[in-house]
Simulated assay, not measured.
Amino acid sequence: MAHRLRPVDPGFLASAPVRLVFATEVAAPPGAVYRAIAEETADTPSWFAAVAAATPLDGGAAREVRLRGGVVFRERILVADPGRCYTYRVEETNAPGVAALLEEWALSPAGDGAGTRVGWTMAADGAAALRWTLRLARPGVGRSFRDAMRALERRLTASPAA
């Protein structure tokens, strides 16, 4: 890893200089969505195309995520509230210019009662070039999130083979 990041807590979600916030609904219950995001770490690349590999570490208290393109994150889980919230901070990365990075997946029942409203917030701080790049990348990151949620929905709602 290139460098360690500043440790932040969940309060950073409200105070970060850059916040990318996205939300959508998935036709699967919150428990199933939570399991896919928080517990079935190694399967993440099957539904999140930006992720090349995800490996749980420290008995599930941390994980390493490798993105397509070579960026690597070592993450520490801060909040694991099944069916509701999954929050982690990046502790080490090879991405340049990052000083602090925290992500939160917030889950709640969808309006129809059968699905899940999925909110994803990326909170970041770093060099001016990083802040500018993240703001510029917002539409692409949002598209990646929506594509991932559609793929996750297909995976979670597919009928088992007969």
Rank of each mutant, 00 (worst) to 15 (best):
F12Q: 08
T116W: 10
A49D: 14
P139G: 13
G60D: 06
L107D: 12
D9K: 14
L156E: 00
T116P: 06
V72S: 09
L20C: 07
E25I: 05
T121V: 11
R155W: 06
W120I: 03
G60P: 07
P139H: 12
S15I: 02
G70C: 12
E39F: 01
E104P: 06
A106Y: 05
R84C: 00
T24M: 03
P160L: 02
A54Y: 03
W105I: 00
G11I: 01
R74G: 08
G119P: 08
G59C: 08
R117E: 13
F48H: 11
R35C: 01
V26W: 00
V33Q: 10
L130H: 13
T24N: 03
S144D: 13
F12M: 05
A161K: 09
T93D: 00
A50H: 04
A114F: 07
A16C: 11
P10G: 03
L5D: 11
V71N: 10
T116E: 14
E39V: 06
T87Y: 01
E92K: 03
R131V: 04
F22K: 02
P139F: 07
P139R: 11
E104Q: 15
P96R: 09
E103L: 13
A123R: 01
P82E: 01
R131T: 11
E64Y: 03
S159P: 14
L13T: 03
S46V: 04
G115D: 06
R19F: 09
P7W: 04
P96V: 04
L102D: 01
A110V: 02
F145G: 05
T41H: 04
A49L: 08
N94L: 03
M122F: 05
G115N: 07
G11D: 15
G115H: 11
P139Y: 10
E91Q: 13
A54V: 10
V79H: 04
A54E: 01
A62R: 15
A151H: 11
A148Q: 07
S46C: 05
L20G: 11
A124V: 06
P139C: 05
A54P: 06
V51T: 15
A53H: 01
V98M: 11
A161P: 05
D81I: 00
L13Q: 06
A106V: 13
S15N: 09
A32Q: 14
Y34Q: 04
A99D: 14
T24S: 12
A114Q: 15
T55A: 13
L5K: 04
V8C: 09
A32P: 02
G83P: 10
W105E: 00
E75K: 02
A14C: 02
P160G: 12
E92A: 10
G31R: 15
V71E: 03
A161E: 07
Y34V: 03
A28S: 08
A53V: 12
D125Y: 10
V90K: 01
L78D: 07
C85N: 08
R74F: 06
A50T: 11
R35S: 13
A27K: 07
T44Y: 03
R63Y: 12
V90D: 00
A52I: 09
G140S: 13
A129W: 08
R84I: 01
A49Q: 12
A127S: 15
V33F: 04
L20W: 07
E91R: 13
R117Y: 04
A14D: 15
E40S: 10
